[in-house]
Design a protein around this nucleic acid. Structure first.
Lengths: 249, 249
DNA sequence: CGCGAACTTGATATTTGTCAACTAAGGTGG
DNA sequence: CCACCTTAGTTGACAAATATCAAGTTCGCG
């Protein structure tokens, strides 16, 4: 049951980018990640309007925050990758303003309130890292808004692929310039605000430009430099540049 | 120099929605709001990439978070209304991932780090309210993403006008169904991800449907029910439904 | 092998952007 | 108070981006 390497624990791998964890911190995180469960693809964990009972941690697979409109159309607000958490700030949250659903099959950890309280009391570095993580999530949300408002579909999708590469690299889930991406074209479109048909065509454009290949749920970036250029991608917003040195607490 | 009423202090008015403040809390907030300065319209307070020296509080006017792309186009990520703050979480933030600029002339308070530390130590209710406020800001950001991805221009703009009405009412800055909105059509477009020309036409459509009027920087909602209906507006996401009763700290 | 989900394609409609010109409004100096 | 000047708002014609519809095709899997 013990984890072999840190990259088996995407949460640890991720949080190391946000703060310097102690061995005790890591042990605690492994302990938390121990109580996981498998969740089927396309399953809603908590729905818009419900009261959260606890927080979630994704250990494996891809989940998402999303919102569904009256007319049935869905907007994905964030992809939750391994190591990502959501609404750890339940204290001030009475009612969800969006839903959390799995996309692929996922390994999920339910984090009850008292675990968070315990972390706050005994693991300040973890808390710092989690705050950093929440900050980066919000920044990512802003970058998505920029993409939808001011980038055309090709650049926006290129940008997303760049982002996912960097985020997955940070948890050791990307080999070179490729990574598993268990999304349908519809699920891509729901994030990008595009129709399925258009996603299909944009994808073809990116393939034809020899920028990416996307076959069998695997995305390979053929020319990262050119893709970044195309997307106007600047990874600053992910705040992944190494733990803060200013650890004066 | 003393504030006459609470609604003279939009910060207090706002935070009362997020927690129950004590008289001492209110006194402290008035003290903080005392050291304000006027800032010219269209002035950048802090730029993308810079290191924040402190946080900001808007007391009057409209400011924004925004991001400017290589090609010069701008995306507004949030309107900062009176009572709104930004990056109070500086502890984990090394470098800004977006800019803060005024739109109209603004009254701004610079909040240095030590003031935040002091609030954290001595004013837990204020801290709780600020966390709630940050949560609502993030939720608003998500709602904007939904608007850009899944609403057409008319509905998206209608949605924005509904949102602004509710937010401004919460700080006593809306009379009935109208409020001052010192934005040009270009500044509206930068938030909605639309061109100026299109904003102009959408506005005409809304006027012709007798849903809103927008003359001389004043926006009047002529039929809020119909506008909400049109926009698919549900104010839940603003989390303004009254202070949390669960004040068990 | 067959079935359903995902992907692809073409034709067409709709939405939105761009360009260029024009009009209206507010502010300032003479 | 007016002349002027700049900024904001408006309009029409057109182009580009994206959505929609409908019909295939391919793929993975039981």
């Amino acid at each position: 049951m013990a984890q072999k390497h840190d990259f088996d624990s995407p949460l640890i791998a991720k949080l190391e980018h946000g703060a310097n964890l102690t061995p005790a911190d890591r042990a605690r995180l492994r302990e938390i990640a121990g109580a996981s469960r498998k969740v089927d693809p396309r399953t809603t964990l908590i729905r818009d309007g419900e009261e959260p009972r606890g927080a979630y941690l994704v250990l494996d697979g891809i989940a998402c925050r999303c919102k569904v409109l009256q007319n049935g159309s869905r907007q994905i607000l964030a992809y939750l990758l391994p190591g990502d958490t959501c609404h750890l700030d339940l204290k001030s949250l009475r009612e969800m303003d969006h839903s959390i659903s799995t996309i692929s099959e996922c390994t999920i950890v339910d984090i009850p309130r008292d675990v968070i309280d315990d972390l706050a009391l005994h693991h300040p570095h973890i808390m710092r890292a989690l705050q950093w993580s929440a900050l980066a999530d919000e920044s990512t949300l802003r970058e998505w808004l920029v993409g939808m408002g001011r980038r055309n579909a090709v650049n926006q999708m290129a940008h997303l692929f760049c982002e996912l590469l960097i985020r997955l690299r940070a948890i050791g889930h990307a080999l070179e310039d490729s990574y598993d991406l268990p999304l349908t074209q519809e699920e891509l479109g729901d994030a990008l605000g595009l129709s399925v048909v258009h996603v299909n065509r944009i994808l073809q454009a990116l393939r034809q430009e020899r920028l990416v290949s996307f076959k069998g749920r695997r995305l390979t970036i053929l020319d990262f430099e050119r893709l970044k250029e195309r997307a106007g991608f600047n990874p600053n917003y992910l705040h992944l540049t190494s733990p803060l040195q200013a650890a004066r607490t």
